[in-house]
Amino acid sequence: MGGDAAGPVPMDGHDFAIWEKRVDALVILGQQRGHFTVDGLRRALEDMGEQAFESMTYYERWVTSLNQNLIEAGVYSLEELGTKMEEVKARGDTYGAVQS
């Protein structure tokens, strides 16, 4: 990435959505709990490949890396995640509606 050609720097900003702030907080706290390091976070980000940097937003990549690291650390299993995600989806259609 560094040194590649690219277009003008986009100056648009946005306020962080609450789900993005929560991802950020979980990444910090997951490290404080000793489940992974910042290098583990980076490694999973890089494993996603260049395509992920085109198709996913910043915090979409982060939540993916967070999940990968927590599963590797044994905090929960892939199966538990899948079950929980189905359960969350069944609660409603919007982020606000599915909070437990």
Binding site: W19, R22, V23, L26, G30, M56, T57, Y59, E60, V63, T64, L66, N67, L70, V75, Y76, E80, L81, K84, M85, E87, V88, K89, G92, D93, T94, Y95, A97, V98, Q99, S100
Partner: peptide, 16 residues
């Protein structure tokens, strides 16, 4: 509309 990644965030948070 709830996204896949938001669903993942909620699931991770609740599991933790």
């Amino acid at each position: 509309q709830l996204t896949y990644w938001q669903t993942m965030e909620i699931a991770i948070r609740e599991l933790m």
